[in-house]
């Protein structure tokens, strides 16, 4: 945990420097612009400088062992946590990526089936029932009720009859 605390403080410090750099790229100005007041880059630049100071402060406190994380000898993630977090984040990532190609509904269905059935070991009848029920409910709530069309990708033609029946 101590290493994570210190590493994260360094990452946050580096991010603050990057923000400061971004905030002063012309035509952004970080100082006083006559008749216009503070420049457009002033707020992000000076606030990011504050972030950098805090990141150094956080690192120093962690280094000195003032914070509980700075003193902790426990691992940042045990095997169970690493597995749960990586599978969850990875499968959501895959769902979002798949949405661009096969559309939201197929991506959601595949995600729910994988997460419940394969990863969560939920019984398959329940998995299949819930995996179909949720996208169907979302279709009626968002597309039919609120007229918000979710991305369909290559599955768009399959939805045309449904649009005619329920959306328009």
């Amino acid at each position: 945990m101590r290493r994570a605390e210190l590493t994260f403080a360094v990452i946050l410090g580096a991010f603050s420097i990057y923000l400061m750099y971004m905030a002063q790229i012309p035509p952004l100005q970080i100082g006083w612009v006559p008749k216009k007041g503070p420049g457009s880059g002033a707020a992000p630049f000076w606030l990011s400088l504050g972030m950098l100071i805090c990141a150094v402060w956080i690192f120093w406190r962690g280094w000195r062992g003032i914070t509980p994380q700075g003193r902790s000898t426990e691992p940042f993630m045990d095997t169970y946590t690493f597995k749960v977090v990586s599978v969850t984040v990875g499968s959501i990532f895959a769902m979002l990526l798949a949405t661009h190609f096969v559309g939201a509904y197929v991506a959601m269905l595949a995600f729910l089936m994988f997460y419940m059935g394969v990863f969560g070991k939920v019984p398959w009848p329940t998995t299949i029932w819930v995996s179909f029920a949720i996208p169907t409910g979302i279709f009626f709530l968002f597309e039919s009720g609120m007229k918000i069309l979710l991305p369909k990708g290559i599955t768009e033609p399959l939805f045309i009859p449904l649009y005619k029946m329920f959306v328009y």
Binding site: I92, M95, F111, M116, G120, K121, V122
Partner: peptide, 8 residues
């Protein structure tokens, strides 16, 4: 494990 993916 049913609730979590629904929320996601």
């Amino acid at each position: 494990m049913i609730l979590a993916p629904l929320i996601f």
